[in-house]
């Protein structure tokens, strides 16, 4: 476990988001004390880190103290950072450690927000989410679903899978038509502290034919050997990536 995600450092665990290559998307990390807590006297120390195919961060940016009522916005463009892999990007970590009190459970996290603006337009808004420390209990950690994938000549679904743990994770994509027919990808491996990115038509056999009778729309299940952080977005031919939402865990 990297030091940032270690309980030895703090019971306030980090949250994560995708770190896309800066040639495609410009990232702002929005740090809002209002979003973190409305409690008087709350304050935080915040560090941002970037990971690319390894457990040690390739960059680290200390934001410093955030007191109640304050907001900061950190544009990664302005930090003179190394670049993540161009084909899949990396992982950005937002580690907000609250000092005025511990989490109500044994561990917790303070999530923040990322706004990504495409160099060619588009982009997305997404909250950062944890791999450990969330309050909600998931029913199972080896399955998450994405209702409403699209694969046709008019649009394609892009999947991003983040693996912010020290262990390689096996994953498989199972596409399902509206009427319940399925097609499965092969199992593939995502390295420790790495991002994986792919179009479903490149990984799920004959998915366009599978979804054709329903206007190219269906569902996707993401199976994995460890919990992953899956995201999905869409592209139209010749258009930029728009939207990058998170998948739906099956909560208990």
């Amino acid at each position: 476990m990297a030091r940032s995600a270690s309980l030895e450092q703090s019971p306030w665990l980090p949250s994560f988001g995708w770190w896309p290559h800066p040639s495609e998307l410009g990232i702002s990390v929005i740090l809002s004390s209002h979003h973190a807590s409305a409690e008087e006297g709350s304050y935080y120390d915040i560090v941002l880190r970037g990971y690319a195919d390894g457990p040690e961060p390739v960059w680290e940016h200390e934001v410093g103290r955030l007191n109640r009522g304050e907001e900061r916005v950190v544009a990664l463009d302005g930090l003179d950072l190394p670049e993540p892999p161009v084909d899949r990007g990396g992982i950005v970590e937002v580690h907000a450690i609250r000092h005025d009190r511990p989490p109500k459970a044994n561990v917790g996290f303070v999530g923040m927000w990322i706004e990504a603006v495409g160099r060619a337009g588009g982009g997305y808004l997404i909250p950062t989410i944890p791999i450990r420390g969330q309050k909600k209990i998931v029913q199972r950690d080896d399955l998450q679903v994405i209702p409403g994938i699209v694969s046709s000549r008019e649009a394609e679904t892009e999947i991003v899978l983040l693996n912010p743990i020290e262990t390689s994770t096996e994953a498989r994509l199972v596409a399902s038509s509206a009427s319940g027919l399925v097609s499965e990808s092969e199992w593939f491996t995502i390295g420790p502290w790495s991002a994986w990115r792919g179009k479903i038509s490149n990984h799920v056999p004959r998915v366009r034919q599978l979804l054709a009778q329903d206007g190219g729309v269906g569902g996707l299940a993401v199976y994995s050997s460890h919990k992953l952080l899956p995201y999905f977005g869409f592209t139209r031919p010749g258009q930029p990536l728009v939207c990058m939402d998170h998948s739906a865990p099956l909560f208990a």
Binding site: S28, I30, S32, H34, H35, A36, S37, A38, E39, W113, E115, G122, L125, P147, G148, V150, A155, F232, F234, R236, Q239, V242, C243, D245, A248
Partner: peptide
């Protein structure tokens, strides 16, 4: 374009006002 996200649920008890300890924000 296609842009997507999921629904938002109503509260378990629609009649009970409960103070949140955080603000919803639009970043």
């Amino acid at each position: 374009c296609i842009s997507s996200t999921h629904e938002k649920k109503g509260p378990a008890d629609p009649a009970k006002l409960k103070e949140r300890n955080y603000h919803w924000i639009f970043p």
